[in-house]
Design a protein around this nucleic acid. Structure first.
Lengths: 238, 238
DNA sequence: CGCAAAGTTGATGCTTGTCAAGTAACGTGG
DNA sequence: CCACGTTACTTGACAAGCATCAACTTTGCG
């Protein structure tokens, strides 16, 4: 019996989906095996190197991308070139503004990224037919809105020191939600961190050095950071 | 015939809903007359004076509120009392975080406000049964996310002068989307504007005085502002 | 090994916050 | 209706925090 069930399961679930995080936690968990199979005919897995542009601001969206691995950076630019990072996306988030003709942000691979690309048409048809899927997307959108509003407090009311601590805490929490993480790689350069926090590279660097001097963090590789005591970092977040 | 149709229409559409903006542009436009009638048994119209608290951060939500008139201010507070306004809601927006046990913001009446209150249970039951309604809510949530991200650019990367100009432009655009408005009342005090922009009262005041001295705006009553040339204000937004 | 890119550190100045005083609008009671 | 007090806002002087500019160091890569 076990053998038969396993066969049915394997034949109904596309191979690519079987080990996919989105299958269980992400939007694909709202799909039946049949829908998943149908969808898989319109998807393809792609890799992007750090720095690749995934979506351009004010350009038409041709496909959505489910983040499988890595970090995607969403940003906006003022006419004179000032930059602001307005969001980070991790697995299993969906990249691409739903129900709009054009993107309202630039999306870039912050690290090396694997995506499961879905054509715009297939995705929108699926959403139309499947209210449970739209509900999943609604939950993700509400969470992104909560995160954006949390970040507005950081941008508007925190000092440079608190901003940098908040960023490090954000990354640490995302890498290990249990709060036990002590060591990780930063997905952003100092320039990107500055653009996320509304600071210059130099100020970010100074505040990182200060946290290091105070023993709150250890810096190995520029990109590689250790946090011996997450609660102590939390205290610096304001 | 006209008489009969009118009767049918009137009997199916609740009296309170007949002249409501939300009936046509807001979330209620996703409802059939029967659903509207069913919903109307769980709604009541309430008025709040400017300054009234509608929702408290980290407190359970007991009902949602459709904004019929006025402006609602969403804000967050750090432990030491620093304030940040994270959003403004106008008619026909829905106040209250969907699918969450607790509010993630404080909601206050910025001006005198009329709301159509819906109990949490009735609203959530209706959303569960009505995918078209959830779709409407999804569109509102996506728009709020777009607005939050636009505002993050203002908070992170604009100067004080650009921030104040951006705020005035935002209000002017909301009061008259055609872009022809020249005169309006500010829905926020200088203190709230500061909390929206991540500035102090004094800096807001100085920048307003500067815009006035430069002839970009005219200030009558503290709260009452005229913009003779909206395009000129737009140029100051960075 | 040497060059380019990324990051750090230091000196200085501008922007904005802080503190303080003063002015205009608003409501209340006489 | 007008003095009064309260609140909201404005303006000024000064200080602090962050940006800017510049030199230097580390890291990664051909």
């Amino acid at each position: 019996m076990q053998h038969v069930r396993s066969d049915i399961h394997n034949s109904a679930t596309p191979v690519l989906c079987q080990s996919c995080q989105s299958r269980h936690q992400g939007i694909c968990s709202a799909l039946s095996p049949e829908q998943l199979l149908a969808l898989s005919r319109h998807t393809r897995r792609v890799h992007h190197d750090a720095g690749d542009e995934l979506l351009a601001d004010a350009e038409p969206i041709t496909s959505y991308g489910n983040v499988l691995r890595g970090v995607v950076k969403l940003s906006k630019v003022l006419e004179d070139g000032r930059h602001q990072v307005v969001g980070l996306q991790f697995a299993p988030d969906l990249v691409g503004r739903l129900f709009a003709q054009e993107s309202r942000v630039t999306a870039e691979a912050a690290s090396d990224v694997d995506l499961c690309l879905v054509s715009k048409e297939a995705m929108e048809a699926l959403v139309r037919e499947n209210p449970a899927l739209e509900h999943r997307l609604m939950l993700q959108t509400l969470r992104e809105l909560d995160e954006a509003r949390d970040w507005m407090v950081t941008l508007g009311r925190k000092t440079a020191a608190e901003k940098v601590a908040s960023f490090l805490y954000l990354i640490a929490s995302h890498i290990d939600p249990t709060g036990e993480v002590t060591t990780f790689d930063l997905p952003l350069s100092r320039a990107d961190i500055g653009d996320f926090l509304g600071l210059t590279i130099e100020t970010v660097s100074r505040q990182m050095s200060r946290l290091k001097a105070d023993g709150v963090i250890e810096i190995e590789n520029y990109r590689h950071v250790s946090v011996p005591d997450l609660a102590r970092l939390r205290l610096r977040c304001g």
